[in-house]
Simulated assay, not measured.
Amino acid sequence: MVSAERETAPGKRVRPGARAIVIPLLAGAAVSVLLGVYAKTHEPAGYSVGIAGFSSAQAMKTWLASVSFLLALCQFASALVMYGRLPVAAPSWIGAVHVWTGRLAVLVSVPVAVHCLYAFGFQHYDTRVLTHSLLGCFCYGAFVAKMLLLTRNGLPRWAIPIAGGLVLTGVTGLWLTSALWFFQHNGLTL
């Protein structure tokens, strides 16, 4: 074990990958907290962004969140192929699919997040809404941590899959507490 560790202070040893993980995790946690603080302290405007073609801001958010969720599921499936967890040979293009579905998922989620932050802020009037507010902050913090981890060398093999899993968990929870709820109460309204 001594060869896999280095001396940092008298009597203390740190694994080489620890710093590579800790800094992105702290940055992600800071993003989560800052989003939560901003959302809680700013006065909700009740409106924000709108995209033509939707009947309401809620419908826009619901459909964009659904597209983002589907792209996150594509990310999950492509990651399973890349990591050899599915009984298929990884095609040469799977990495590009993974990268581009991730980029599109984030791009599609930004209007939703901006609308939620600016129009509603951090709400907690019932369990579903509180859970949604917490997951929104968590999800973007986990995303920042994952993106920073991708730039690090010397990570344990499990670090990126765990970070990706946390982002997927956040996106899934957000979809369940918003879009699914909307579809159940309003149908498939555009």
Rank of each mutant, 00 (worst) to 15 (best):
F143Q: 02
T131N: 11
Y140H: 12
L26C: 15
L80M: 14
I160S: 06
W93A: 07
N153D: 12
W93D: 01
P111N: 07
A105I: 02
F120D: 13
H124L: 07
A142C: 10
R13T: 15
S109G: 09
G121K: 00
C137S: 11
Q75G: 09
K61W: 08
Y83F: 06
R157T: 06
N186P: 00
A89T: 13
A57I: 10
S109N: 12
S78W: 11
R19K: 12
Q184V: 03
A89L: 06
L149S: 10
V67H: 04
W100M: 07
T127L: 11
R6L: 03
P156C: 12
A113Y: 15
V31Y: 00
R128P: 01
E5I: 09
L26A: 13
V49Y: 05
A27L: 14
G121D: 04
L80E: 09
L166N: 01
L180Q: 04
I21K: 12
S68L: 01
G53P: 07
G141V: 09
L166Y: 02
G46V: 07
P24A: 02
V37C: 06
T189M: 08
L86D: 05
Y38W: 14
S56T: 11
A9S: 15
L188E: 02
D126C: 05
F122P: 00
T172N: 03
I23W: 08
I160A: 00
F54D: 06
V106W: 07
L71V: 04
N153H: 15
Q75K: 02
T172G: 11
A59S: 14
S68F: 05
R85S: 03
K61C: 15
I23G: 12
Y118R: 15
S109I: 03
C74M: 13
A57S: 11
A145L: 03
P10F: 09
L148T: 03
W100Y: 12
T131S: 11
T151F: 04
C139L: 13
G84C: 08
A96M: 07
G154V: 06
V129F: 02
T127S: 11
S109D: 00
E43I: 10
G17S: 15
G95R: 09
V2T: 14
G53M: 02
G187C: 02
Q123I: 04
P10T: 05
S92E: 10
Y83K: 11
A4K: 14
G165W: 10
V97E: 01
G187M: 01
L188S: 01
A59E: 12
G102T: 03
H124T: 09
V108T: 14
C139Q: 05
I51C: 08
H98Y: 03
C116Y: 09
P91E: 05
T41Y: 09
L35K: 02
G141Q: 08
A4N: 15
F120H: 13
M147D: 02
F76I: 12
L35P: 00
H185S: 10
G17P: 05
S133L: 10
Y140M: 10
A113K: 02
A72G: 08
L174G: 10
L35C: 08
L26P: 10
F54S: 06
A45M: 14
E43M: 10
R13D: 01
R152Y: 05
I162A: 13
T177R: 03
R152M: 11
V88G: 01
G53N: 04
I51F: 13
L104E: 01
N153L: 10
V97Y: 00
